[in-house]
């Protein structure tokens, strides 16, 4: 059985039918990407999984447990962490405090070990641990957002547009980290507008258009498809 399974979910923003009958799954230790243009409904899907939004119909099952009615703050404790779009780190709190918030649901005793792991992966964060997060550069903020999500030691890490607003070199760095995390055993659900970069790391992908899934397949299927090349890969 898949680690995460979404069956026929429909999500509304008021009268707007933002996600229409979307089904997909993520197997344990996979990297799966949802690609599509701005406003296609990708972020809405992630927010529905993390409990910030609620599906009107359909079901989402994680680890064999249905997520319906589970409040957002309990989803994290269940093993799903999200790096939200635009990073949304706590700008007025220090780097260390941001990381502590990431471990909010974890026992206090494991805090310093988890933080050490993050500092090993992102040495820049250790250098700036007492700095207010608002003073970090864009790339550092993205690292902090990822580190903060990893503090809860998630089974499933969801990343929403991690490449947004970053210089190409930094984008590459972020995707290297995604690969490393994957090799370390973390399952990843990646939402990206930058389809090229996303498909470079993903095992499989789904293409969203106006709230619907219009194509899906393995990385090589999607890379080979002419329609997708035209619409999303700029070929």
């Amino acid at each position: 059985m898949a680690l995460l399974q979404a069956d026929h979910i429909n999500v509304f923003y008021g009268a707007i039918h933002a996600v229409q009958d979307v089904s997909f799954h993520v197997e344990a230790r996979e990297i799966v990407t949802l690609i599509g243009a701005n406003g296609a409904g990708k972020s809405t899907v992630l927010k529905t999984i993390s409990g910030l939004l609620h599906a009107k119909s359909g079901r989402i099952v994680f680890h064999g447990k249905e997520l319906k009615g589970v409040p957002a703050h309990s989803v994290v404790a269940g093993g799903i962490a999200q790096v939200p779009e635009g990073r949304r780190i706590f700008l007025r709190m220090t780097v260390e405090e941001n990381l502590e918030m990431g471990a909010y649901t974890q026992p206090r005793a494991s805090l310093s070990a988890a933080m050490q792991e993050i500092f090993q992966r992102f040495p820049r964060l250790e250098e700036r641990r007492n700095q207010v997060a608002g003073t970090l550069s864009g790339g550092e903020q993205q690292m902090l957002a990822m580190g903060r999500a990893l503090m809860s030691r998630p089974t499933l890490l969801m990343l929403d547009e991690p490449s947004m607003g970053l210089a190409p070199l930094l984008v590459e760095q972020i995707f290297d980290i995604i690969r490393e995390l994957h090799q370390g055993g973390t399952t990843i659900l990646l939402v990206e507008q930058n389809s090229q970069a996303a498909l470079s790391v993903a095992d499989r992908g789904y293409v969203l258009e106006n709230g619907r899934i219009v194509a899906s397949g393995t990385r090589s299927d999607l890379l080979a498809s002419d329609a997708i090349k035209k619409a999303y890969l700029g070929a």
């Binding site: 993390s50 910030l52 957002a72 703050h73 994290v76 949304r88 706590f90 405090e97 918030m101 809860s152």
Partner: peptide, 24 residues
């Protein structure tokens, strides 16, 4: 304190705070 930090997190960004597992 943990609760004090949670207060600051919620006052800065309710959505992100929930994603941390903080109960609003």
């Amino acid at each position: 304190t943990k609760l004090g930090k949670a207060m600051r997190a919620v006052s800065e960004d309710m959505g992100a705070a929930q994603l941390m597992g903080i109960s609003l």
